[in-house]
Design a protein around this nucleic acid. Sequence first.
DNA 1: GATGCTAAGGTCCCTAATCT
DNA 2: AGATTAGGGACCTTAGCATC
Length: 201
Amino acid sequence: MWEAFEKDRASIVGGALQALAKAMAIYPNVQLDKLPRMADFTRWGYAIAEVLGYGGERFLQAYRKNRNQSNEEAISSHPVAATVVALMKENQSWSGSVASLLGELERVAEQEKINTKVKTFPKAAHILSRRLKEVKSNLEDVGITFDIRHAGDSKKVSIQKSGSNVIPIRPQSGTLKLTGTDSIEVKDIELSEDYDEFEGW
DNA sequence: GATGCTAAGGTCCCTAATCT
DNA sequence: AGATTAGGGACCTTAGCATC
């Protein structure tokens, strides 16, 4: 394999540099309406996809799809995020102290059969606020925003749901289907996607 | 089995806001 | 001004895991 690689190495590196040079030329003209996090990466990805002939729009679609998948997995595997999502299925907004939120999340977790015995489920309010900050951006991506601020003698959490794009809680096991390979058993996710050159970006 | 590393939780102390 | 309350940050401890 390395022999074949060494044989083609010059062409591979040359091609990559040519693509990069072309992408650098059009990069200043790449203007996107809405830039997600990693905005610079998105612009470069768009420019490179354009010069490689795939089309920037196709890159954007694939990148968006991949980000959504990653986000859903992150939320599903995080007990606090999953419970907040479950809580906001019932409510358009929620507010109260961090301690009362912890109690509410324990109630919802029990209702939704989410395991609160795992180590990552907070047992104290200040641990909960840490956990919330960890998943703030993931929750924002599914339309849930929150704000923690001083109000009276306690910290008040205000959670808002925008739109109706709150994702469902995923099952605890499933099957990952890969094109061209046998299906493999995985934990926590179920994916079945058409092949796409940008998959995994 | 011993050792080292890493991540998470618990404890202590500090801060901010409110009450008396 | 001091006491009280709730939450955050820093530090320490502990459990789980990998490596030898």
